[in-house]
Computed example of a mutant assay.
Amino acid sequence: MKLSKLGRIAAVAAVATIALTSCASNEGGTAPDSSSSASSLSGELVGIGASSQGSAQEAWIAGFQKANPEVTVNYDPQGSGAGRESFISGASAFAGSDSALSDDELAGTFAGCATDSKAIDIPVYISPIAVIFNVEGVDELNLDSATLAKIFKGDITTWNDPAIVALNPDAKLPAGNITAVHRSDDSGTTKNFADYLNKTAPDVWTEKPADPFPYNTGEGAQGTTGVVDAVKNGSGTIGYADASRAGDLGVAKIKVGEEFVGYTADAAAAVVAESPAVEGRADNDIAIALDRKTTDPTHYPLVLVSYAIACDSYEDADQSALVKAYLGYITSEEGQKVAADSAGSAPLSSDLTEKVTSAIDSIK
């Protein structure tokens, strides 16, 4: 079965699909120009994956609409794990994922890709992860990584625990129980959160970072929206979510070096800019090994890089053209500005943009 047919089945079945008729005037890595001649592109493009990209994808699809009226883009924010599984099975033309493909995944086969070709990871979205909380009478909260790890592991269970009090001597912390809300689905946001805790508090967070939340503690919620709603509607709650969804909830500062730091897009981008590439990947596979251990207080190490995962060569040439056009738009200067305006994300740096554009151009 052709990928485009599988994509149509996935699009019809998806309940949470973001669907807009979309457009772009180019098939490479350049932003669409609404003043250019009519696009020759047509067809349907299906993406499934990270809910962290949800707000950005809505804005990207709306922007892409201006130049390709004969193209329909559907993005279903089921979560990073579901996105990668769908892409591997050929049910989507690209995946959104807050973690790059693992070595084991790369060693497998991809149903929508041409024979003997592989998938590649393309950074499209950089965002801080916010530690959100809802505690009556508490407007500000400082946490170091060891205390944060103990809260989510279940070792610290009340808000007036001495470890939290020591970090917040001026706060009126209640004696009530802590409800730590984590993702119940396989989530790249969870993997990034766990990676931060494992790297900075390894004596506490001993489990290897992975998409599933590793401990049988707290309360699980589906997707970014589920975590935010559970924290907002609960009492004495704390959770983690893409910063674009923090809304009016309290957001904790985390300890970086000797200071407590709140998230900003610039502070998140600074970590990415100084982090190395994952070793052993192809030149067009841009996976980043984030530096979680920075002590520079101008940096915010609880950050995620969210990827678009695509084939380096597609079985269906029409799908290849659509993927190249869409990824070219969302990683362009215009596309990154759209995401920053709608989701508060950090635009790709000029150096990273150059690598990303080359990777997208290599897709066949």
Rank of each mutant, 00 (worst) to 15 (best):
3 L>Y: 02
7 G>S: 02
8 R>V: 10
8 R>I: 11
10 A>W: 04
10 A>Y: 01
14 A>T: 13
16 A>W: 08
18 I>M: 10
21 T>Q: 14
25 S>A: 11
27 E>V: 15
30 T>M: 13
30 T>A: 14
32 P>G: 14
34 S>E: 09
37 S>E: 04
42 S>Y: 02
43 G>R: 00
43 G>K: 00
48 I>Y: 10
48 I>E: 10
49 G>P: 03
54 G>Y: 07
59 A>L: 15
67 A>H: 01
74 N>W: 08
75 Y>L: 11
76 D>H: 10
76 D>I: 12
77 P>F: 05
80 S>H: 05
81 G>T: 04
82 A>T: 04
82 A>F: 15
84 R>C: 12
84 R>D: 02
87 F>R: 00
89 S>C: 06
91 A>L: 14
93 A>P: 00
95 A>M: 07
104 D>C: 06
107 A>T: 00
108 G>W: 06
116 D>W: 11
116 D>C: 14
118 K>G: 09
122 I>L: 13
124 V>F: 05
125 Y>A: 06
132 I>W: 04
135 V>L: 06
138 V>L: 09
140 E>G: 11
143 L>N: 02
148 L>D: 01
154 G>D: 13
157 T>N: 00
157 T>L: 00
159 W>H: 04
159 W>A: 04
162 P>Y: 03
170 D>V: 13
180 A>R: 02
180 A>E: 02
181 V>A: 04
185 D>L: 02
189 T>P: 11
190 T>F: 14
192 N>E: 05
192 N>I: 04
194 A>C: 08
197 L>E: 00
201 A>S: 07
202 P>N: 05
202 P>R: 11
204 V>I: 13
207 E>M: 09
213 F>S: 05
215 Y>C: 12
220 G>M: 07
222 Q>I: 10
224 T>L: 00
229 D>Q: 12
232 K>R: 04
240 Y>F: 15
251 V>M: 09
255 K>Q: 15
259 E>P: 08
260 F>D: 01
265 A>W: 01
265 A>H: 03
270 A>D: 08
272 V>P: 05
273 A>Q: 06
274 E>Y: 03
275 S>R: 13
278 V>K: 09
279 E>L: 11
280 G>R: 08
282 A>K: 14
282 A>C: 06
284 N>G: 09
287 A>E: 09
294 T>S: 15
294 T>E: 01
295 T>D: 14
297 P>V: 08
299 H>T: 13
302 L>V: 10
303 V>L: 05
303 V>F: 09
311 C>R: 15
312 D>E: 11
312 D>L: 03
313 S>I: 01
327 L>W: 00
331 T>K: 07
333 E>K: 14
333 E>T: 15
335 G>Q: 02
335 G>K: 07
341 D>L: 10
342 S>A: 15
346 A>M: 10
352 L>N: 11
360 I>C: 15
361 D>R: 12
